[in-house]
C-alpha cells in the first residue's frame, strides 16, 4: 500500500507540475460543459443533470486515451521503465499507484464541473442524490476506461499507437452498450440477420447482442448515474477494473521476466 502511495504521489505531482493537466483539463471542461450547458440549462425545464451524464462517457472516451497513453509508453520511451523495474516495488503496487493517480486527476477535473449543478440548484430545486450517483458512476466508468487504456500503454512503446488502440477499444466497449448507436449502424438487425444467413438460429444473434450489452460498462453507468446504487453494478466495475489492472501487471511482469 505504501509503495502504491509513493507512486501515486509521484504521478499526481507530475500531472499537476506539467502543462498536460491544464491543457487536457481545460479542453475537457470546454467540451463537456459547453455541450452539457445546452442540454441542462433550459428555462422552464426540470433541474436535472441527465444531459451532463449522458454526454460524459463519450467525452471520456475522447480524452482518457490522451491521459493513459503516456503512463507506461513514455516510461519505456525515455527508459525509466527499466529503472522502475529495478526498484524494490511490486508490479501490482506500481500499476495501482499509477491508476489511482489518473483517477485522482480525473476527480479533480470533475470537481470543476460542479459549477453546473450549483447553478441548477440556484435556479431550480435540484435533487443532489442522483447527482452524487452520477459522479460516482462517472468515476467508476472512468476507472474502467483508464484500466483498459493502461493495458494498451503497457504493450507498446509508441504513445500515439497506445492512444489510438485505447480510443478504438473504448469506443467499441461503449458502443456495444448504447442501443441507439447499435441501431444507427444497423448492428441490432444486422447481426441476427447475419447469424440467420449463416444458417444458425437468429436467437444466437440476439443473445450475442445481449452479451455485448452486458459486457459494456455503459449499461451499468446508466443504472448508477440515475441515482440507484446497485451492488451488481459495483461488482461489475470492481471486476472490470480488477481484470484489466491484473492484465496490465501480467504484461509488465512478463516484460520484467524477459529482461
Amino acid at each position: 500500500m505504501r509503495e502504491s502511495l509513493v507512486i501515486f504521489r509521484r504521478e499526481l505531482k507530475s500531472y499537476f507540475l506539467s502543462p498536460i493537466a491544464y491543457v487536457v483539463g481545460v479542453l475537457f471542461l470546454i467540451v463537456q460543459m459547453g455541450f452539457a450547458g445546452f442540454f441542462c440549462l433550459i428555462d422552464r425545464a426540470q433541474a436535472r443533470m441527465d444531459g451532463f451524464f449522458t454526454l460524459l462517457p463519450f467525452v471520456l472516451v475522447l480524452f482518457l486515451p490522451g491521459l493513459t497513453m503516456r503512463l507506461w509508453a513514455e516510461e519505456r520511451k525515455v527508459g525509466t521503465l527499466e529503472l522502475l523495474m529495478t526498484f524494490p516495488v511490486r508490479i501490482g503496487a506500481l500499476v495501482v499507484g499509477k491508476f489511482l493517480a489518473v483517477m485522482a486527476f480525473l476527480a479533480v477535473v470533475l470537481l470543476f464541473t460542479l459549477v453546473l449543478p450549483m447553478m441548477l440548484t440556484v435556479y431550480g430545486s435540484l435533487d443532489w442524490s442522483p447527482v452524487i450517483g452520477g459522479y460516482l458512476a462517472s468515476l467508476l466508468m472512468a476507472g474502467a476506461f483508464v484500466a483498459v487504456g493502461m493495458v494498451w500503454s503497457s504493450v507498446t512503446r509508441d504513445q500515439i499507437v497506445a492512444m489510438l488502440l485505447a480510443l478504438v477499444s473504448l469506443a467499441l466497449l461503449l458502443g456495444i452498450g448504447v442501443t441507439w448507436f447499435l441501431d444507427l449502424i444497423g448492428i441490432t438487425r444486422g447481426l441476427p440477420d447475419l447469424v440467420d444467413w449463416l444458417g444458425m438460429p437468429r436467437t444466437i444473434g440476439i443473445a450475442a447482442l445481449d452479451v455485448c450489452a452486458a459486457i459494456s460498462p455503459y449499461r451499468y453507468f446508466e443504472s448508477v448515474a440515475r441515482g440507484v446504487i446497485d451492488t451488481r453494478d459495483l461488482v461489475y466495475y470492481a471486476c472490470f477494473c480488477g481484470f484489466f489492472l491484473w492484465l496490465n501487471a501480467l504484461v509488465l511482469h512478463g516484460r520484467r521476466q524477459k529482461g
Binding site: 435533487d127 442524490s129 440515475r226 441515482g227 440507484v228 446504487i229 446497485d230 451492488t231 451488481r232
Partner: peptide
C-alpha cells in the same frame, strides 16, 4: 443484489 435508490 442490493439496491439503494438515492433519489428524493
Amino acid at each position: 443484489r442490493l439496491r439503494f435508490d438515492l433519489t428524493q
